[in-house]
Write a protein that binds this DNA or RNA. Structure first.
Lengths: 222, 222
DNA sequence: AAAGGTCCGTACCGTACGTTACGGTTCCCT
DNA sequence: AGGGAACCGTAACGTACGGTACGGACCTTT
């Protein structure tokens, strides 16, 4: 009669968090073959405890996704005083951070799981909806204030913040995520991430910047 | 003793093609739960025939991916004489075509399958490698001649064709593919596809175009 | 008409996995 | 020290699915 704890809000024991970390580790190294037996063995816990804590396999997976999402949340990027250089710096740091996240083995493994079961008949979306809410839409909510502030400061110009935001993440991410998800052996070193972030940001500023661009960065046809 | 027909090159009976179409239909409507029984029932054939024709489940899946890929191949986009308007038109048609492909239910379902098993221990990449070869890399090989021709004609300028190409598909695709894969209810009408293709192309030409842009398209901060 | 091949429908087998149940151990509370 | 809760390890159960085997129908060939 134990109803599934779908309303769990950060109420996780240290032990349970360790279990979820074990799930993440298994997802990363073992890939799509994730059995309850393997989780129990890896986490050194009994399957009975797994079912008591998370209800069923689906509950364990959603708890894992939420757990990882709660670990990824970083600081905001908005500032009070904003000049062209500060805006560019904020955008570059945002882009580099996001590239680091989406190219991390954990994010790749988690997205694979969410995508694999997004097609199933699970109503409500399941893991895919959670990944979208905590990934795509969360970063949108975090970056849009920066873009709006840049527009208010007269540094950039656009009609729709959403459209500008999508152009930016398109320039930043390009085909990285889909290639990594499909198993492409694509290594992003921290140096490449930083360079890509700067290139994408400068391209974005070229497209949406006003007449006062950052000096010395007219066009970057890298 | 029937060795698996891994060297099948378009040698498919009409019956077998119908079976693969049934697999595609099942992938689209049923999602990740694809059993051999369901395929046999849907295609009105026996499981024995499935195993005789495709070896095993993996062979059936790879044959399906190849079959779909062979259906998507469209005409090339290169031209002999190229002015600014012709280049822009080629890019727009290419972008619209690609957007239509990646937003089609068949492509989404197929990518879901390839991604789901790309994490598994299957060496060589499996379906993911096939999807990459026939998707991402195939369109690259098809578009790069156009970009190079545009550069030779002095219409656009860049150092690395690959980098320019990746910026282009970033501007075109943005976050469409990952959102659809995660189950986002995102509908792309033909009109939106055409508008997105034009916007992305004009943004690309703004970034990489030379001093002679298409008249009347200086900046499109849509 | 007889023979042989191809294929459909179904039944069957072995295994893997999700889920449940149980005995033994550790730890906390009083 | 005694009682109880939580938990670990393992065994057991039911189902689902990949893969195989078999009987019968249809079609072609001679």
């Amino acid at each position: 009669m134990t109803l599934p704890p779908d309303t769990q809000d950060e109420t996780l024991t240290e032990r349970q968090q360790a279990v979820l970390d074990a799930v993440l580790a298994l997802m990363v190294e073992q890939g799509g073959e994730l059995t309850m037996n393997a989780v129990a063995r890896r986490a050194s816990c009994s399957k009975e405890s797994l079912y008591k804590w998370f209800g069923d396999r689906e509950g364990l997976l959603t708890a894992t996704v939420r757990w990882q999402a709660s670990k990824v949340r970083t600081g905001n990027y908005d500032r009070t005083r904003l000049d062209a250089l500060a805006l560019r710096d904020s955008l570059i740091r945002f882009a580099a951070n996001w590239l680091g996240v989406i190219s991390s083995p954990t994010s790749i493994a988690l997205n694979r799981f969410a995508i694999a079961q997004a097609g199933g008949g699970t109503p409500g979306g399941g893991l895919g909806a959670i990944m979208l809410a905590n990934g795509r839409f969360a970063i949108g909510a975090r970056l849009k204030p920066v873009l709006d502030a840049g527009r208010d400061a007269g540094l950039i110009d656009f009609d729709d913040t959403e459209t500008a935001f999508r152009s930016f993440i398109g320039l930043v991410g390009r085909d990285v995520q889909i290639r990594l998800l499909l198993g492409d052996t694509l290594r992003l070193t921290p140096g490449e991430i930083e360079a890509d972030a700067a290139r994408a940001t400068d391209q974005f500023l070229t497209l949406y910047g006003t007449a006062n661009p950052v000096p010395g960065l007219p066009k970057t046809n890298a």
